[in-house]
Amino acid sequence: MQMPAAPPRSASGYLLLAALGALVVASFASLPLKLSEFFTPQALDTTTEFLAGFAPPELSPPFLRKCLEATAETLSMSALGTLLAVLGGLALALPAAGRFGILARATARAILNVLRSIPELVWASLLLVAAGLGPFAGTLALALHTSGVLGRLFADALENAEPLPEQTLRTNGAAAMASFFYATLPQTLPQMLSYTLYRWENNIRAATVLGVVGAGGLGQMLKYHLSLFQMQDAATVVICMLILVAMVDALSFAMRHALTRR
């Protein structure tokens, strides 16, 4: 049996690869990378001395209690920020998917672009001026940035959904909202939940970084102890971060696996 001929390759694909290759070469040429300095004896000695200051980590019960409270605060920031982002993202995803006209679609897409273009750290710096230090500003920063990300992903999922089931319900007299909830939303819900869990993983890491600017949680503890050169205390905080991220990653993976399993 004769194999079918391979489809002809487009010249635009080769041009795109060539452009990407040129960009990589230009990046290496323009940046003053000094990789050899990482392996000088002085650099190795300094790094070894710095890392040795972290051992052994501080394990006193009062300090571990503080770390546990900060861990719970970081987890709460990420969970609440993600929940608010799901609500905001879904509210913007409906018009962004073109369900309310072209003007509403363009407006919603522009809002989503603004929300996700500003990093969480910048949002937190802006909100700290209005809300003050603490986890409230960090939670809002996570919610605003993640709303832009999830809103775009939700909108794309809605646009890519099979339109025939909803059209069939509408043809048989069902209301527009009922048709959406019974036909289109069930198609996209597993994908939306997967996106949400993945962003929750990212928000755990982001919440620890936001603490560096005063948004509470483990990040704020880490900045405090590093600024005072209390390296053993900082080592305990870093270990708490690693444990928290590993636990959330494992939980999120299990939930996504359960959602996608047939």
Rank of each mutant, 00 (worst) to 15 (best):
M1S: 06
M3H: 08
A5V: 12
A6I: 10
P7F: 10
P7A: 15
R9I: 03
S10K: 05
A11V: 08
L15W: 15
A18W: 08
L20T: 13
L20P: 11
V24A: 11
S30G: 09
L31A: 09
P32C: 07
F38L: 15
P41C: 11
Q42H: 02
T47Y: 14
F50E: 01
G53W: 03
G53I: 01
G53E: 12
A55C: 08
P56E: 12
P57G: 09
L59A: 12
L59F: 09
R65P: 00
C67T: 13
L68T: 08
E69Y: 05
E73R: 02
L75N: 07
L75H: 02
A79T: 13
L83N: 04
L84S: 03
A85Q: 03
V86E: 02
L87S: 02
G88H: 08
A91L: 14
L94W: 15
A96K: 10
A97I: 06
F100I: 08
I102P: 09
L103D: 00
L103C: 01
A104W: 15
R105G: 11
T107N: 04
R109N: 03
A110S: 13
I111A: 05
I111P: 07
V114D: 09
S117K: 03
P119F: 02
E120L: 09
L121W: 05
W123C: 13
W123F: 14
L127C: 13
L128N: 06
V129L: 13
A130H: 05
G134Y: 11
A137C: 03
A137P: 00
L142F: 03
A143V: 09
A143M: 12
L144G: 10
H145D: 04
H145S: 10
T146I: 06
S147Q: 08
G148A: 06
L150V: 10
F154A: 05
A155H: 03
D156R: 07
A161E: 06
E162V: 00
P165Q: 14
E166R: 10
R170L: 15
N172S: 13
N172C: 12
A175I: 00
A176N: 06
A176Q: 10
A178V: 10
S179M: 03
F181G: 02
Q187L: 08
P190C: 04
M192Q: 06
L193Y: 10
S194R: 15
S194E: 09
L197H: 07
Y198T: 15
R199S: 05
W200Q: 01
W200T: 06
N202D: 02
I204W: 02
R205L: 07
A207P: 00
L210Q: 05
V212Q: 10
G214C: 04
A215N: 00
G216I: 01
L218Q: 07
Q220H: 03
M221L: 15
Q232E: 14
D233V: 08
A235P: 01
M241Q: 06
M241S: 11
L242W: 13
M247E: 01
A250H: 06
A250D: 01
L251V: 15
R262V: 13
